[in-house]
């Protein structure tokens, strides 16, 4: 019964995709055949080598521009069908929030090309969104300078440091620019600034509510905020390390009810 197993079977066995009798027969064979144990070990090593390739964070945030509509069922038609004025309004507001419009309002795949990640680690990715109804309102988020040497704990697979990684001993820096805030007040904290910061991953959303440091200043009609967070402190899903999206939601304090949302990728390293 113990014919030499095919490469296919060894491979499927490693993936737990061999079941039932086939699996039992293979296991029985492995008990007695050193050659096949070696074949399996070599295959396992190969798989490990491929799996060890580093996962890279995307160099930009992927977005859907508001002018791109769903097909089939004709978008305009669904709305023009009437009666859905309230729903329309909702869609518009959502669009404002999530369109991630770049300054010109064209393709919205802003904003941090790969090159921004390279070289110095002084700048993280940045994204700016503009309220299409009121171009004076603008929200910018950047993940700031979190130069993170590979020596401190990320394996990179290459010699690159991971400039945007935050680790438990390396605070996450967040920079915000709120353009078009009425008055001349300076917010004392995030709530005061009508800003909500969250880290998202895999459906989890963790609020970043209590920064370790917070500073705000007025400059040319904009409020600039810098906040740092110890990544160890919010209850990140386990394992904490991984790719997140750092999202800021700003409820523009002008009574319009508009919220702007911008987001940048952030990496939490071990």
């Amino acid at each position: 019964m113990n014919a030499e197993p095919e490469l296919e079977d060894l491979s499927a066995y490693l993936d737990q995709e061999l079941t039932g009798t086939a699996r039992q027969q293979l296991e029985a064979h492995l008990q007695t055949c050193e050659t096949c144990r070696r074949r399996l070990a070599a295959l396992r090593q190969t798989v490990s080598a491929v799996q060890a390739l580093p996962t890279e964070a995307p160099p930009r945030v992927f977005t859907i521009p508001p002018q791109r509509q769903q097909r089939t069922g004709a978008p305009g038609w669904a709305w023009a069908g009437g009666a859905l004025a309230a729903a329309c309004l909702l869609v518009v507001v959502t669009t404002i929030g999530l369109a991630n419009l770049p300054h010109g309002g064209g393709m919205a795949t802003t904003n941090a090309p790969a090159s921004r990640y390279q070289g110095g680690a002084d700048r993280g990715p940045t994204m700016t969104v503009t309220d299409p109804q009121d171009l004076s309102k603008q929200l910018t988020i950047s993940s700031g300078s979190t130069a993170f040497s590979a020596d401190q704990g990320t394996t990179t697979g290459s010699q690159a440091a991971a400039p945007l990684a935050a680790s438990k001993n390396q605070p996450l820096q967040v920079g915000l620019i709120l353009q078009g805030v009425p008055g001349d007040g300076v917010p004392a904290n995030l709530t005061d600034a009508h800003v909500r910061l969250t880290l998202l991953r895999d459906g989890y959303e963790v609020a970043l509510a209590n920064p370790d440091t917070f500073s705000a200043a007025r400059e040319n009609g904009a409020v600039r905020i810098t906040a740092t967070f110890r990544v160890g402190s919010p209850p990140l899903p386990s394992p904490a390390a991984g790719n997140y999206v750092l999202r800021v939601t700003w409820q523009v304090p002008d009574g319009s009810g508009v919220s702007l949302v911008a987001q940048v990728p952030v990496t939490v390293a071990n």
């Binding site: 996962t55 990179t156 690159a160 945007l164 394992p239 990496t267």
Partner: peptide, 8 residues
């Protein structure tokens, strides 16, 4: 260089 993420 890349923005490399690793859990290794």
């Amino acid at each position: 260089e890349a923005h490399v993420v690793s859990l290794g």
